[in-house]
Write a protein that binds this DNA or RNA. Structure first.
Length: 260
DNA sequence: ATGCCGGGCGAAGCCCGA
């Protein structure tokens, strides 16, 4: 089963690119982030024509997450527990039947958190703490679980072209990196890092300043696997070529293959 | 180091992202 995540930065603008990528790579499950639209405006038909079911947790202008699946989508559940006052559409979880049993997947759009002096940074850290608590609850189920998405965290100095320039950025602050490690310490595996030792493999390049041409990127889109999923991990990759296409998102897809 | 880029909204210019 091939699982993927992609922050599309507006599904309305990116719909042709997503369709082309789906046709080329044929993932079984895709988690999308930054739809920037409500569920009504989500272009589900163009994905259904390719054989995908869609579950959408939308929001006008900001955020918005979705799950596409070639298999049925069961129990699609929006929102991360732990703060009923949080109305951002940043989390959608669902159960997907596999050949043997099921896989639980989540599409996650963690807050950016900049500037760090603003209330956006504590909001980010609180969201990540809620994600950790929920991830801990999910471990008790002892199921194959994949938490896919834009975590907005650079895990370490090898995941950015020039870490010195990011020291006071919310994506690289010690508090953010610590929060990402804390989820892994619960028992989750970074799928890409488990498959690749190469450093400086990026998932995001800023539109500005020729970042893509200079390969000045960051690795912030991640797939975390529960032990029952990680035990069957066979491959992972970053579809970097997508960044060179027509009207690209600033993020590219990250995927993993689990033999379940 | 930032908003030079790109998108939303809405019809100019501001908000937001990373």
């Amino acid at each position: 089963m091939k699982l993927a995540t992609w922050n599309v930065n507006s599904i309305k603008v990116r719909q042709p690119a997503v369709v082309a990528w789906l046709k080329e790579t044929i993932p079984d499950v895709v988690c999308l982030q930054e739809l920037k639209c409500t569920e009504d405006a989500f272009p589900a038909v163009s994905f259904e024509e390719l054989g995908y079911n869609c579950a959408v947790h939308g929001q006008k202008t900001y955020n918005g997450v979705a799950i596409l699946s070639r298999r049925p989508i069961e129990d699609a559940t929006p929102r991360l527990p732990g703060d009923d006052g949080d109305d951002h559409a940043r989390y959608l979880e669902a159960i997907i039947p596999s050949r043997q049993g099921t896989v639980r997947v989540a599409s996650i759009y963690a807050p950016n958190g900049n500037p760090v002096e603003s209330d956006k940074f504590p909001y980010k850290l609180k969201f990540l703490d809620r994600l950790k608590s929920h991830a801990q609850q999910l471990l008790k189920l002892e199921e194959p679980t994949a938490l896919l998405g834009d975590y907005n965290i650079i895990p370490g100095p090898d995941d950015v072209w020039n870490p010195e320039l990011w020291e006071n950025d919310a994506l690289y602050r010690p508090e953010s990196r610590s929060a990402f490690r804390a989820i892994q310490y619960l028992g989750y595996t970074d799928a890409f890092r488990a498959c690749h030792a190469q450093t400086h493999q990026y998932t995001f390049w800023d539109y500005q300043g020729g970042s893509w041409q200079k390969d000045h990127g960051i690795r912030i889109d991640h797939i975390l696997l529960s032990p029952q999923a990680a035990d069957h991990l066979t491959a992972s990759g970053i579809d970097k070529n997508v960044r060179a296409g027509e009207k690209p998102s600033d993020h590219v897809p990250v995927w993993c293959e689990i033999d379940i």
